[in-house]
Nucleic acid binder design. Structure first.
Length: 591
RNA sequence: GGGAUCGUAGUUCAGUUUGGUUAGAACGCCGGCCUGUCACGCCGGAGGUCGCGAGUUCGAGUCUCGUCGGUCCCGCCA
């Protein structure tokens, strides 16, 4: 008798297979030992099938089955039987049948698992990540990796159909200024020199366009050595793309097709095209953020003009210093208690608010510690601007614009969460366009690129490069879904002269530009086609598609918030000899 | 770099407010019984560095300080 060969998986047998001899392989999910008959739920990647050991059929095998325990690995051969009488289990796809076992091979035993795999019980991240291989056996966890696979396959098929080429770019590349902190790899061959892991394949994909590849994509790991969040890991995956001879409209329309295909294939949602678009300026003005969640209201209203010269000193002095006063009308929140308001104020303070004025709109009066400072005209103006009705609550932000915007943007999200007024079935896609080219960095006393230094400005604004860079807008675009940035890109500069001017505006001198980006400038001079691209965050996208609360859930082997891997215990010390080879001398205390 | 929160049996958690006898429950695990269960049932049993270290106290799971780890957030990062 040879070794058993698997004939089916644990999710495919039903009445159509009655009477067939089959062989299944999998893990013991649960055993129900009645002394006589023994039931085992056998689990594999696909599902669960009940296998039965009956002492009357085969006493020897039955005795052997008695010792089976959780997560032992089995091969069973037997006949597919209809379950007797009322014994069907509607919860299982295979619930109408069972396997009457006449041959059992124990392929492996297992220690008792450190946490239960058979239910969706809460297990600490600590344990889950330490025993990630067990965690991944849980169907609901495995399902997320399955969906990730399906999503990537769908995207690849779509892009292949659109004549994109999948091309790999180096993981060992050079560190470039701007952007996030690099992960560095010391060179053994060149003492004192370092590779950097890519933050994105930005320059390579542009060079591929210059190479005439025309359309490139890659499912690619990117690395940023910054602190982690629920939606940020130090290594993450992008669907990265670049196209030649296109403008932003063409790119946006191709991407909309891709996203529509993706949503249909993964979660069966039919999106209607095209997606909404909004200029950056409008997003900030109405929502305080460049990634607004448009599933609910509470929009920002600018009261600066209406309240200039008002009797409230706090507002006045802020306006005098160039600040703004904006407010949101929390419709129907007039009943909020003092504690509710204190909580919101405390919440606002996390984002830089130094206080939060509020007004409760009552039938007979405006109830607030600050109403007395305003005259009738000001109150009327506010009431009209905010559409204030009895029962409403007005929340104010008064500070420099960036602080006000951040605070009110976070407050409106917090309000929506508290009131539970977000329609979870909605998929609000929104393109944000016309970002500023530059923003002024107070610390470094220079302009930095909002997107990156290769983003093209609008051509009719080129003369502003010298006179007023801050007023320039770029040909960049982000795709936002329900308040989450899931992708972003731009049309690039393909003219080396403009590229040099942009570097100059960023305070990067010609010499430095040559040293750091000389290879790109040189390439641009050899007939670079107009081109542009975009990249999607695969992990965030999958987090949204699976309804997960962290991207760790959709990454097979994620890192903890302190950027360690609990499974492998990386990072770890290395032998002194390895350091010497790399020309590194440790200045840390050795164990 | 900073703030918040959690850490008690293999797991999930109660006990910490107000320090005081032998630290409990459920699930899991082990043993026994059980021929139709599917979260099987019944009976019995084992299982604890209360994260770690100092301190206060006659006495610390409980109070104080430090430290380690998980998570969330600010800064940082597109």
């Amino acid at each position: 008798m040879g070794a058993l060969q698997r004939t089916h998986n644990c999710n495919e047998l039903d009445q159509n297979f009655l009477g067939q001899e089959v062989t299944l392989m999998g893990w013991v999910l649960r055993r129900r030992d009645h002394g006589g008959v023994i039931f085992i739920d056998l689990r594999d990647r696909w599902g669960i099938t009940q296998v039965v050991f009956n002492p009357e059929i085969n006493p020897e095998i039955h005795a052997k089955a008695h010792q089976l325990r959780s997560e032992w690995v089995l091969a069973v051969r037997g006949r597919v039987e209809r379950r007797p009488g009322e014994m069907e289990n509607p919860k299982l796809k295979t619930g109408a049948i069972e396997i009457l076992v006449d041959q059992l091979t124990i392929l492996n035993t297992s220690q008792t698992p450190p946490f239960p795999l058979d239910e969706d019980s809460e297990v600490s991240d600590n344990l889950r990540l330490q025993y990630r291989y067990l965690d991944l056996r849980r169907p609901e966890v495995a399902a997320k990796l399955v969906m990730r696979h399906k999503a990537l396959q769908t995207v690849r098929n779509y892009l292949n159909d659109q004549e994109f080429l999948e091309i790999e770019t180096p993981m060992l590349t050079r560190s470039t200024p701007e952007g996030a902190r690099d992960y560095l790899v010391p060179s053994r061959v060149h003492a004192g020199k370092f590779f950097a892991l890519p933050q994105s394949p930005q320059l390579f994909k542009q060079i591929l366009m210059i190479s005439g590849m025309d359309r490139y994509y890659q499912v690619v790991k990117c690395f940023r050595d910054e602190d982690l969040r629920a939606d940020r890991q130090p290594e993450f995956t992008q669907i990265d793309m670049e196209l030649s001879f296109v403008d932003e409209h063409r790119i946006i329309s191709i991407m909309e097709g891709m996203v529509k295909t993706l949503f249909a294939a993964t979660i069966g949602v039919e999106l209607s095209l095209p997606f909404a678009q909004m200029r950056y300026e409008e997003a900030i003005r109405r929502f305080g953020t460049d990634r607004p969640d448009t599933r609910f209201g509470f929009e920002l209203v600018d009261l600066t003009q209406a309240l200039t010269g008002c009797g409230f000193k706090v507002f006045n002095s802020i306006i005098d210093k160039g600040g703004v006063v904006k407010a949101i009308n929390a419709k129907g929140c007039g009943h909020f208690s003092r504690k509710d308001l204190d909580d919101l104020t405390e919440y606002a303070s996390r984002f830089g608010a130094r206080g939060m004025a509020w007004i409760k709109i009552k039938e007979e009066e405006w109830q607030s510690p600050i109403t007395k400072f305003f005259n009738d005209e000001e109150i009327a103006a506010m009431g009209q601007a905010l559409d204030a009705q009895p029962g409403d609550l007005i929340l104010f932000g008064a500070d420099m614009p960036s602080t006000v915007h951040q605070v009110l943007a976070e407050l409106r999200l917090e309000l929506a969460r508290r009131l539970d007024c977000i329609d979870q079935d909605r998929h609000d896609f929104l393109w944000i366009t016309d970002f500023p080219m530059f923003e002024y960095d107070e610390e470094e006393k220079r302009y930095t690129a909002i997107h990156h230094p290769f983003t093209a400005p609008h051509e009719d604004q080129l003369e502003l490069l010298d006179s007023d860079p801050a007023a320039m807008t770029s040909r960049a675009y982000d795709l936002v879904l329900n308040g989450n940035e899931i992708g972003g890109g731009s049309i690039r500069i393909h003219d080396p002269e403009i590229q040099e001017k942009v570097f100059k505006a960023l305070g990067i001198e010609a010499e430095e530009a040559q040293e750091k980006f000389g290879f790109l400038l040189k390439a641009l001079a050899f007939g670079a086609p107009p081109h542009g691209g975009i990249a999607f965050g695969v992990d965030r996208l999958l987090m949204l598609l699976t309804g997960s609360s962290s991207i760790r859930e959709v990454i097979a082997f994620p890192k903890t918030q302190k950027a360690t891997c609990l499974l492998t215990e990386a990072p770890a010390p290395v032998a002194r000899k390895q350091l010497t080879e790399l020309h590194l001398r440790p200045d840390w205390k050795e164990e």
